[in-house]
Amino acid sequence: MLTSGVILLQANLLSPNPGLIFWTAVTFVIVLLILKKIAWGPIITALEEREKGIQSSIDRAHQAKDESEAILRKNKELLSKADAEADKIIREGKDYAEKLRADITGKAQEESKKMIAAALSSIEQEKHRALDVLRNEVADLAVMGAEKIIKTALDADMQKKIVNSMIQDLSTKRN
């Protein structure tokens, strides 16, 4: 078997066959050209496009992340600023309200004082006026009394009584 194998090896296994080389070359070149046209072109283009797509997606995702982080930071800043602003406004408002209240109460007190004073003065005036009216009335009464006395009889006793009663009247009225 060994010898026959060696003979066969020499005879056939490594023997060149130009026809087969020719057919291999022809077949391979045709397959290469057709596959290049119908398969490798589209496949590789698609793969490259997908690669680029994935890369750009990743880039975009990173960019979006950075952007969102920036926005978040800005928002936080704005929020803290707004908080501070709000605090300030509240504080100012409180201060103003305090001041306003103090003003208003002050004014009200002043006003009431003024009103009381005015009332007192008007009361005083009224009193004076009433006294004046009373005085006039008394004078009229005195005159009327005098008239009466004169009309009835100028009796001395009578006159005394009349004057006394009049004075009595006046003093009681006055008090």
Partner: peptide, 11 residues
């Protein structure tokens, strides 16, 4: 077959 592989190797 050595002829086939040879053809491919020549490419």
């Amino acid at each position: 077959n050595i002829n086939v592989t040879l053809a491919l190797a020549i490419f």
